[in-house]
């Protein structure tokens, strides 16, 4: 993959429309002291970019490569491995429905269906207004709360589809 990347990415490191702001860059550079290599901070940097823009764009890949002193291919290699990063733009809010065993046997399919009925989105689809993306998640480590969801960064135990309905309304 690495050898394919350079020519195919859009954006250039000296583009006027920088994705990594000066503030972000300072935060990233402050992290470097914690590790023997700059690459070790890459997951942290990718989290910053993903949170702010809801995606990792080609431009971001180029800029992060330069900051971390690695090739764009290496940035892509890392980011493409992890579920939390997306090259496609995700919605403003992420509805993470846990679909692993405890949540499955406690009714997570009803929650997926509720989201589909209410927002007309399936797994990894985003509403037309860009407000929500439905993310089926593998075990989120909250099995005692099954069926559990992660609405953006907050864990919720969902006891009824009405509760999910309310939560989506409140989040929007």
């Amino acid at each position: 993959m690495a050898w394919q990347i350079v020519d195919r990415l859009k954006g250039t490191p000296d583009s006027a429309d920088k994705v990594v702001t000066d503030e972000m860059r300072q935060k990233i550079e402050a992290e470097f002291a914690k590790y023997p290599t700059k690459q070790a901070v890459l997951l942290t940097s990718l989290h910053m970019v993903q949170n702010k823009y809801k995606q990792i764009s080609d431009q971001a890949i180029r800029e992060l490569a330069e900051i971390h002193e690695i090739s764009p291919g290496e940035v892509l290699d890392t980011l493409s491995f992890y579920d939390m990063y997306s090259r496609e733009k995700l919605g403003k809010n992420l509805i993470g429905v846990c679909v692993s065993l405890s949540c499955d046997i406690c009714g997570c399919k009803d929650l997926m269906k509720k989201v589909k009925d209410k927002l007309n989105i399936g797994p990894r689809e985003t509403t037309e207004d860009g407000k929500f993306t439905l993310i089926p998640m593998e075990c989120i480590g909250a099995c005692e709360m099954a069926p559990a969801i992660l609405m953006n960064e907050d864990l919720h135990k969902i006891e009824s589809v009405e509760q999910l309905d309310d939560l989506i309304d409140k989040t929007a």
Binding site: S100, L101, S102, E138, C139, G141, A142, C143, E144
Partner: peptide, 11 residues
Amino acid sequence: DESEPGTFKDR
């Protein structure tokens, strides 16, 4: 990294 389905003790 607690990710094994069914596990939430470290959390």
